[in-house]
Amino acid sequence: MSDNWVVQNLQDILNRWNSTLSDIWTLITMSPENFQGGAIWRIVLNIHGALQAIGYSLLVLFFLVGVVKTCGTFVEMKRPEQVFRIFIRFAIAKGVITYGMELMLALLSIVQGVISTIMNSAGFGTPQDTVLPQEIIDAVEDCGFVESIPLWAITMIGGLLVTVLCFIMIFSVYGRFFRLYMYTAIAPIPLSSFAGSPTQSVGISFLKSYAAVCLEGAIIVLACVIFSVFASSPPTVNPDAAAATMVWNYIAELAFNMLILVGTVKMADRVVKEMMGL
């Protein structure tokens, strides 16, 4: 590592960003059961199990509402096909509540498989590190103390910008985890709405929203893969330009690519919801 303090600042900026991408990569490919040692998941399981009793109570309520809304008269209840249809709906709704956790984990597992497919198809086991070009290192090391002052200011501004972008990225990924936990914990209540025909839209919307949260991981990984290709490509460096100009142009180009990545991650929820018609 160079002894020049400006070069060290630039490398610290890139190391901070590379570390953030690695953390995001790890979090996206991690199962909720293993996040934070599984402590949060155990609490979610306890809440889910406690809410199942409420879900069964709502199941009966929604079932009765559905029967009243569906059958205009008691005579219709005497028709075997009508009784069979209502019984099947009730049995399916009860099964969805009882095995709702397995259903949601299966859906998450499918999405994790999609994420693995994206990673393997792109040929990335880990995100590609962004490396400081040697031309910039040589130009900065040739600068005197006075010439290094504006370079120091540029690196300070770039470091602040990258720190903010790293925080936004990590916040977005952690937010996805928290939404997965909340959807899983509260699942028995909206899933009970499948018992009645008039209320089944609530359960359908819940499952579609949960699927959208799961698919956010695929969009984030895809964005990281595209950014890694950009970052691994040699940047445009003019060897005849002043060191300050070279560093400024490099940070500006890098920041622009980072902003695109952060914007894509922030819009992942909206993109997936548009894809699913939510």
Rank of each mutant, 00 (worst) to 15 (best):
T98L: 13
A106E: 07
I40T: 10
V44I: 08
M101H: 12
D23E: 13
G38R: 00
W25D: 01
V83Q: 13
A91L: 14
V68Q: 13
D12I: 08
L108R: 10
L14H: 02
A93K: 00
G72D: 03
T70Y: 01
V67F: 03
P80N: 08
Q82A: 14
G66F: 00
L107S: 11
L58R: 01
N9T: 07
A106F: 07
R89W: 02
Y56L: 08
T70K: 05
G37Q: 02
G95M: 01
M101K: 13
A50V: 08
A106G: 11
P80V: 09
T26A: 07
Y99L: 12
R79Q: 15
I40R: 06
R89C: 03
W25T: 00
P32F: 00
G55Y: 04
Y56I: 07
F62C: 02
F90A: 06
F63L: 13
A93S: 04
W17M: 04
S31F: 06
D23N: 11
V75I: 14
G55V: 04
F74V: 08
V83L: 15
G38I: 02
L105G: 04
F90N: 03
A93E: 01
W17T: 04
T70Q: 06
A91S: 13
S57N: 15
W25V: 02
R85F: 12
A39I: 10
L59N: 04
N18Y: 00
L64H: 10
R79F: 12
W41M: 10
I88V: 15
V6R: 02
L10W: 02
K69M: 15
R85T: 15
N18R: 00
W41T: 06
I28P: 05
A50D: 12
T70G: 04
